[in-house]
Computed example of a mutant assay.
Amino acid sequence: MNNHYQIGQHVKVKVAGIQPYGAFVETPDNTEGLIHISEIMNDYVHNLSRFLSEGQIVRAKILSIDEEGKLNLSLKDNDYFKNYERKKEKKSVLDEIKETEKYGFQTLEERLPVWIAQSKKMIKENKL
């Protein structure tokens, strides 16, 4: 076991592999670790590949060290991921309707082209 790592310490690690449940990482001295998907940020993370990629170097906090010396890490204290969380717009659909729609009745035929255009724009911006 590597005695120079301590719980609570921040270390730079390189992403070695990505699985649906988390990212395997290693330190510069080749100590292995795992960042579980629940430790990326406080929001729900559906696809880990949207946040991490193989070869990426990130700063992570050590949560625990097992008997074999492998590290259990978290990115929740990483400023980059905290800022990403804050950037996300947290609007309800009703807020969007109130901002963009006039009250009244419109037929599906009138609204469908607008909805399609909005959906295409959101897909293009990777928001959907």
Results as ranks from 00 to 15, higher is better:
P28L: 12
D29A: 04
D29K: 05
T31A: 13
G33E: 11
L34K: 02
L34Q: 08
I35N: 00
I35R: 00
I35Y: 00
I37T: 02
E39P: 01
I40T: 02
M41H: 13
M41V: 01
N42H: 10
D43E: 10
Y44R: 12
Y44E: 04
Y44D: 14
H46M: 04
H46P: 04
H46Y: 14
N47E: 12
N47M: 04
L48C: 01
S49K: 04
R50W: 07
L52W: 05
L52I: 04
S53K: 15
G55L: 06
I57W: 05
I57H: 11
V58Q: 03
V58E: 09
R59E: 14
A60Q: 02
A60S: 03
K61P: 00
I62C: 03
I62S: 13
I62L: 12
L63K: 07
L63F: 14
I65M: 02
D66G: 05
D66S: 00
D66P: 00
E68C: 05
E68R: 13
E68D: 12
G69M: 00
G69C: 06
K70S: 04
L71T: 09
L71V: 11
N72H: 13
N72R: 06
N72C: 14
L73T: 10
L73I: 11
S74Y: 11
S74I: 03
S74H: 11
D77I: 05
N78S: 11
N78G: 01
N78A: 00
N78I: 06
D79Q: 12
D79H: 01
Y80V: 07
F81H: 04
F81V: 13
K82M: 09
N83M: 12
N83T: 15
Y84T: 14
E85R: 04
E85A: 07
E85T: 06
R86F: 10
R86C: 10
K87F: 09
K87W: 03
K87Y: 06
K87Q: 05
K91Q: 12
K91T: 03
K91I: 13
S92N: 02
S92L: 01
L94G: 01
D95K: 12
D95N: 05
I97D: 01
K98M: 15
E99C: 00
T100D: 14
T100P: 03
T100Y: 04
E101A: 15
E101M: 15
